[in-house]
Design a protein around this nucleic acid. Structure first.
Length: 208
DNA sequence: GAGAAGATCTCCT
DNA sequence: GGAGATCTTCTCA
């Protein structure tokens, strides 16, 4: 169901200069905005994962800086986009300050605006499965490595804006998906009631 | 330069 | 539920 977008002003840098887990939870229900030429695609963020730095064995930054993970060590509020499994781009948001590596992976969004364009970018896919995975949402939004290190606090081709005020929602936390180390950390967060999360986990707990 | 791993997705059974 | 696709990135020699 379509909804009015009251404001598409980007969230300020201060939003990202907090603990990574805090930013991860705060990103839920915010809007991810992608501008392609004249088209504006908007999705409500419904699932994220937090990744740390040198202390998090599941993180790309665990072994220190490399050319690939440099955005994680840079300024907060920027995009860190990497290519994986030969097929997929994954979109992260950097936190919490320059020199401290960590980021939040955006795993799933709920399409709000620009559905036609998303369907063109991912044809023959049911609406609920357009953006319910990190590789799926980047494809549906036309996100690739050319947007790596884009400043998400400015109105450019990609940014995050405040989500709609609405009914309360319940945050669920669970182990992160697709990793073999650091699984004991419950750093995956998603909106319980959303139909657009990538998968439900048996070992999940509500976070409230 | 070679080999292995990988924050995934889709198809097939 | 399982396995293949596909290729970038990193490590090691």
């Amino acid at each position: 169901m379509p909804m009015m977008v009251k404001s598409i002003k980007p969230l300020p840098r201060s939003f990202y200069t907090r603990r990574t887990v805090t930013v991860a939870k705060a990103l839920l229900n915010q809007n991810l905005v992608r501008v392609i030429r004249r088209a504006v695609l908007i999705g409500r963020i419904v699932e994220v994962e937090a990744y740390g730095g040198l202390d998090d064995p599941a993180s790309h930054a665990y072994h220190g800086p490399t050319p690939r993970n440099m955005p994680m060590f840079g300024q907060p509020g920027h995009a860190y986009i990497y290519f994986t499994y030969g097929n997929h781009y994954c979109l992260n948001v950097t936190t919490p300050r320059d020199g401290i590596a960590s980021a939040v992976l955006i795993r799933a969004i709920e399409p709000l605006k620009g559905l036609d364009m998303m369907k063109r970018l991912r044809p023959d896919v049911p609406e609920q499965q357009l953006t319910n995975g990190p590789g799926k949402l980047t494809k549906a939004l036309g996100v690739d490595k050319s947007l790596n290190e884009v400043d998400l606090t400015k109105q450019g081709p990609l940014y995050v804006s405040k989500g709609a005020e609405g009914p309360e929602f319940t945050i669920v936390r669970s182990p992160r998906i697709g990793i073999t180390l650091g699984v004991e950390r419950l750093w995956r967060f998603y909106i319980k009631s959303s139909q657009y999360v990538s998968r439900n986990t048996s070992s999940a707990h509500t976070d409230q």
